[in-house]
């Protein structure tokens, strides 16, 4: 797990509460703005989508790509971040 980013570790370390979507690993300023306009303003909304897609990596990455035109690294980071968070807290 040493390869995970600091942002990832920070997010996974505690319940997400009301964290903004930009706190997700792989989601920066630009992607955050795009997601916000698409209605995904909080991290928990993205989590909802993640869960609706049944934690399927392929579909989630596809969705990320479609919604905020994230590249595969960004979407994979975000997926891993949510998955680890779910493993920890769900």
């Amino acid at each position: 797990m040493s390869s995970t980013s600091q942002k990832h570790r920070n997010f996974v370390a505690e319940p997400m509460g009301e964290k903004p979507v930009t706190d997700l690993a792989g989601v920066g300023e630009v992607l955050g703005k795009r997601l916000d306009t698409a209605g995904f303003d909080k991290a928990y909304v993205v989590l909802g989508q993640f869960l609706v897609l049944k934690k399927d990596k392929e579909l989630f990455q596809e969705w990320m790509k479609e919604t905020c035109s994230a590249n595969s690294k960004q979407s994979a980071d975000c997926y891993q971040c949510l998955k680890d968070w779910c493993d920890e807290f769900l």
Partner: peptide, 16 residues
Amino acid sequence: PIMPITASTRNLLVKK
């Protein structure tokens, strides 16, 4: 896998 088809997922699934 069978998953709920919602407003946000429908597009994606159709594409797939």
